[in-house]
Simulated assay, not measured.
Amino acid sequence: MFSNGLACNLPFSCMSINRDSGSDELLPSKMSREPVLLNVYDMYKINEFTTNIGLGVFHSGVEIYGTEYAYGGHQYPFTGIFEINPRDETDLGEQFKFRQTVQIGYTDFTEDDVKRIIYELGKEFRGDRYHLMNNNCNHFSGAFTKILCGQDIPAWVNRLAYFSSWVPFLERCLPKEWLMPMALQHSLSCHRDSTCSEASTPPPPPPPY
């Protein structure tokens, strides 16, 4: 099982492997040891509401194999996960400002494995289940990195969620567009528009094993 309860139907990468000194030669050559990076952005318009209580609000995405995956909200009952070029704040919108990259760890999942994981996570991180405090982009990033390399994201990135009881009014008073990155809006329009390129549409279900 994945750490968030999703069943693992992937190959050997799901298994625990002892990497003590001298064991690297036992790793199959297929294993990639790909870096897992967390890209963090300031949501500075929202921060205008929260700085007086000492909280910063951050958006995050997970970068792997040259693609950054992130999560946002919309009104439809399908995935809210979308892709951007790594650290490209212009893909997100004017309210997002790149802050820093944090290396979380390394993974042995292949690029194809990652696409299957994203497909499965999309069933949980649906657009209509987004919530600024309880199920936001940082919750997705943490779930994703725990699957990829067994490590959560730094606590400070999602500190607002831990103090949600202090600011129950915040999500209700924020403009909806502040919570929907431009890249996600484009992904939604492509989902509704059959003229979009195949690469822009949500991925098909993974093949059966």
Rank of each mutant, 00 (worst) to 15 (best):
residue 1 M to C: 09
residue 2 F to R: 13
residue 5 G to C: 06
residue 6 L to V: 15
residue 6 L to W: 12
residue 14 C to F: 10
residue 23 S to I: 08
residue 24 D to R: 07
residue 27 L to E: 10
residue 30 K to Q: 10
residue 31 M to S: 12
residue 32 S to H: 12
residue 35 P to Q: 10
residue 39 N to W: 03
residue 40 V to N: 08
residue 40 V to P: 11
residue 41 Y to C: 07
residue 42 D to K: 06
residue 51 T to N: 15
residue 52 N to T: 13
residue 53 I to A: 08
residue 54 G to W: 06
residue 55 L to P: 08
residue 56 G to I: 03
residue 56 G to P: 05
residue 58 F to D: 09
residue 61 G to L: 04
residue 66 G to S: 14
residue 67 T to I: 06
residue 69 Y to M: 12
residue 72 G to A: 11
residue 75 Q to G: 15
residue 75 Q to T: 08
residue 75 Q to C: 07
residue 75 Q to Y: 09
residue 76 Y to K: 10
residue 84 I to D: 05
residue 88 D to G: 01
residue 89 E to D: 12
residue 90 T to A: 12
residue 90 T to V: 10
residue 91 D to G: 11
residue 95 Q to P: 07
residue 96 F to M: 13
residue 101 T to V: 12
residue 101 T to E: 14
residue 101 T to L: 03
residue 104 I to P: 01
residue 104 I to L: 15
residue 105 G to Y: 01
residue 106 Y to W: 05
residue 107 T to K: 00
residue 108 D to W: 11
residue 108 D to P: 05
residue 112 D to I: 05
residue 112 D to M: 03
residue 113 D to W: 01
residue 124 E to P: 01
residue 128 D to I: 01
residue 129 R to V: 00
residue 145 T to H: 01
residue 146 K to E: 10
residue 146 K to F: 03
residue 149 C to G: 10
residue 151 Q to V: 06
residue 169 F to V: 14
residue 171 E to H: 05
residue 172 R to S: 07
residue 177 E to G: 04
residue 180 M to Y: 03
residue 185 Q to Y: 04
residue 188 L to Y: 09
residue 192 R to E: 08
residue 194 S to N: 13
residue 197 S to W: 12
residue 197 S to Q: 14
residue 202 P to A: 14
residue 203 P to A: 11
residue 207 P to T: 05
residue 207 P to H: 09
residue 207 P to Q: 08
residue 207 P to C: 02
residue 208 P to W: 13
residue 209 Y to C: 02
